[in-house]
Design a protein around this nucleic acid. Structure first.
Length: 699
DNA sequence: TTAGGGTTAG
């Protein structure tokens, strides 16, 4: 080769390495002028230069002009497309590969690397297997690059066992093959297997751990039960000085956050000297997901102050933090900021915004976000459905789910849980049953989320038996499932069964929480079981170390008052070790009215007056008690106080939905078109009630 | 003296 040719080659290589397309193009012109473009070797270099610089059409043009394309020409273009990614590129690769074979050019290891990479983006497992068998026939699989690409392909396409088989059969492995296998297991959330391969690698004399394998194994360990192994990997990273590499630090931050050790995550974050946008995003997301949302917002400000540009991941994390604490002002500011940065078309961002606006009660803004995208994915549909349900618009939740089904988008577990919640609120048993049919059709397992939602739906719709059937068939139950079932049974008037279920739960070794005790104390109250009420109330702190909160005291006052043990209730309130404000006295006052214990009622009422109650019912009840006691002066005093304090009496109001029409009734209101018939019917009912022995309250 | 594989944030 003459010196001029050599100089050209060196220059192409240099421009390719520096991705300098301008200089590359100028050089291309010089090469044509020098009559060197007919050299296949030189033309291949030009195809590669254009491909590496991201100019695929120019690469293809140069490729088309090559006379006598060799395996390098084909492989160059195949790899250019496979690196571009996406389903379209993988079909372009397969097209090129057929053309190459039609021209009798034999593929080599470079070609197969491109083929396997393209297939890994294709969702075509069968196509992947065909390519694999062709590589075996061509006797190419021994190559360590081909092997790693093959493992990667099977990991991404799904059949992870095939990936492992390919890994086990490799005659030679290097750090990339180990890292690919570990990251494959991490991708499939197979922590035990990922750690297994990592340990094998550590035992292997030729291999040393590197940042790729460490970050992969750490991402597999991001579950609370693996935090101890995660710490051991952290030690290895420190020992090998790999902890200072950003990707390892980032993986550690995420691992600790997801394991529930936010403190460790923060410590790792602060110690990291090589923070990039990912590090900040990981920490912000970690804080938001561990109910430290205010800290997440503060960290975002700090990131901004440090001059680090937020990515779409950062915005997802920080917008989710706003959702968590319903910070609408900050949420809107972020919305403006991310539009300025050009992220408003990203589906993850839109989903986070829809969720944020719904949790902040701005359901119209959620709807705008949802309508913004032509083709929402299942997560976005679910966020919008859940948003409607959270805001009490259960009809819209159901109708949107109908649209989603009509579009043929299969729901996921969270969609089903949200829609079941809407059915529960509407007591829509028929629709709930249809959703249950979908659960069976899609083969969803009755794990905690779906099982609890389903059993709650049945009990809220009054079908305790079906609720129980679902509850019994669940493969796993957490405290939320038990609480939901206990409360559901109790609300259907089966308080005895609710208490039995609680005893069963204790026998199974499930530790009750504060919600459980609210449920069972309410059941005791409904059944008038004072002694059991006391037993459970004391059990909370004595056996389960749960400090009774205001709602437990309220339940206990209710237990005592409903059973007519009013003095005991009064003493209980006065010795309560909780800042009870007015809530407990109000319960007692109401009970005194029902039991006509006017002296004690007056005592409770005066307590409420002393505490400055703003509730009209307290003033009305107390004045009625004084009326009954014949204390006219006190009646006038209470009414004056009510006026002085500006307490308005809100008119009692109720409504009923019949055939999609709401009928609203307020006290003293004569607006309803059928009011005469309604009042006549009420008189008949009242008479019937008195005849059957019921006595209406004194007012 | 041309072409190839692995990581971390939703």
């Amino acid at each position: 080769m003459n010196p001029q040719h050599r100089a050209f080659f060196n220059e192409v290589v240099k421009h390719t390495r520096e991705l300098n397309i301008q200089k590359g193009k100028t050089l291309h012109a010089k090469i044509i002028k020098a009559g060197l473009s007919s050299s296949v070797y030189m033309a291949n270099c030009m195809v590669n230069l254009y491909a590496k610089c991201g100019h695929l059409p120019d690469a293809e043009l140069s490729f088309d002009q090559i006379d006598g394309k060799d395996v390098v020409s084909w492989s160059c273009l195949i790899n250019a497309y496979s690196q571009k990614g996406g389903v379209e590129s993988s079909s372009a690769v397969m097209g090129l590969f057929s053309r190459m074979r039609a021209q009798n050019t034999l593929p080599n290891a470079h070609t197969f690397v491109g083929i396997f990479n393209a297939m890994s983006n294709s969702c075509d497992v069968l196509g992947g297997r065909k390519a694999h068998s062709l590589a075996i026939k061509t006797d190419i699989c021994w190559d360590v690059f081909v092997g790693s690409s093959l493992i990667n392909m099977y990991c991404k396409l799904g059949p992870i066992d095939d990936a492992r088989q390919a890994f086990d059969r490799m005659p030679e492995r290097n750090s990339v093959s180990w890292a690919t296998m570990v990251s494959g297991y991490a991708m499939h959330r197979m922590a035990v297997e990922a750690v297994g391969v990592f340990k094998l690698m550590m035992q292997c004399q030729q291999e040393r751990e590197n940042e790729f394998v460490l970050s992969s194994v750490l991402s597999a360990l991001a579950l609370p039960e693996f935090v101890d192994i995660g710490r051991q990997v952290h030690c290895i990273a420190i020992k090998d000085s790999l902890v200072w590499i950003a990707s390892v630090g980032n993986a550690l931050v995420t691992m600790y956050s997801k394991c529930g050790s936010v403190r460790d995550a923060l410590q790792t974050f602060e110690m990291s000297s090589d923070k990039n946008s990912i590090t900040w995003s990981a920490m912000i997301t970690g804080l938001a997901q561990s109910s430290n949302s205010k800290e997440a917002l503060t960290l975002f400000s700090r990131m901004h102050y440090c001059g680090i540009h937020p990515s779409e991941y950062t915005f997802v994390g920080v917008v989710n933090a706003c959702s968590d604490i319903a910070a609408i002002v900050e949420g809107k500011q972020l919305h403006c900021y991310l539009v300025k940065m050009g992220f408003e078309n990203q589906i993850y961002i839109i989903t986070a915004l829809v969720d944020m606006y719904a949790k902040c009660g701005s359901i119209d803004d959620s709807r705008k976000g949802f309508d913004y995208l032509q083709e929402p994915d299942v997560v976005l549909w679910t966020s919008m459905i859940a948003g409607f349900a959270q805001n009490g618009d259960n009809e819209s939740a159901l109708s949107l789910y109908g649209r989603m089904e009509a579009k043929g988008i299969p729901p996921n577990e969270l969609t089903v849980a949200s829609i079941l919640k809407a059915c529960s609120s509407l007591a829509a048993l028929d629709q709930g049953k249809q959703v249950h049919a979908r659960v069976i059709k899609y083969g969803f397992i009755l794990e905690v989320t779906i099982g609890s939602a389903l059993s709650t739906m049945y009990t809220k719709c009054g079908s305790v038996e079906d609720g129980n059937l679902v509850f019994r068939r669940m493969i796993a139950r957490d405290i939320v499932s038990w609480n939901a079932m206990i409360s559901g049974i109790s609300q259907n008037g089966c308080s005895n069964e609710a208490l039995e279920l609680f005893e069963e739960m204790i026998m199974e070794g499930i530790k009750p929480d504060a919600v459980t005790f609210v449920n069972i104390l309410s059941a005791c109250s409904r059944m008038g079981l004072v002694e059991r009420g006391w037993k459970y109330f004391n059990m909370m702190s004595d056996v389960f170390a749960i400090a009774p909160a205001l709602e437990h005291y309220a339940c206990m006052v209710d237990v005592l008052s409903r059973a007519g043990r009013l003095i005991e209730a009064k003493e209980f309130i006065e010795t309560a070790k909780v800042d009870h404000g007015m809530c407990l006295w109000r319960i007692l006052l109401s009970a005194c009215r029902n039991y006509r214990d006017y002296d004690l009622g007056a005592y409770a009422g005066e307590k409420l007056m002393e505490l400055g109650s703003q509730e009209s019912s307290a003033y009305v009840m107390l004045s009625k008690i004084y009326t009954a006691l014949g204390k006219v002066d006190d009646v006038q005093r209470v009414m004056r106080l009510m006026k002085l304090r500006g307490v308005g009496k809100e008119p009692g109001c109720s409504w009923i939905e019949l055939k999609n029409l709401f009928h609203v009734f307020a006290v003293g209101d004569q607006m309803h078109p059928q009011i005469t018939e309604i009042q006549a019917k009420l008189q008949i009912l009242t008479k019937q009630m008195i005849d059957e022995g019921y006595r209406p309250a004194y007012d």
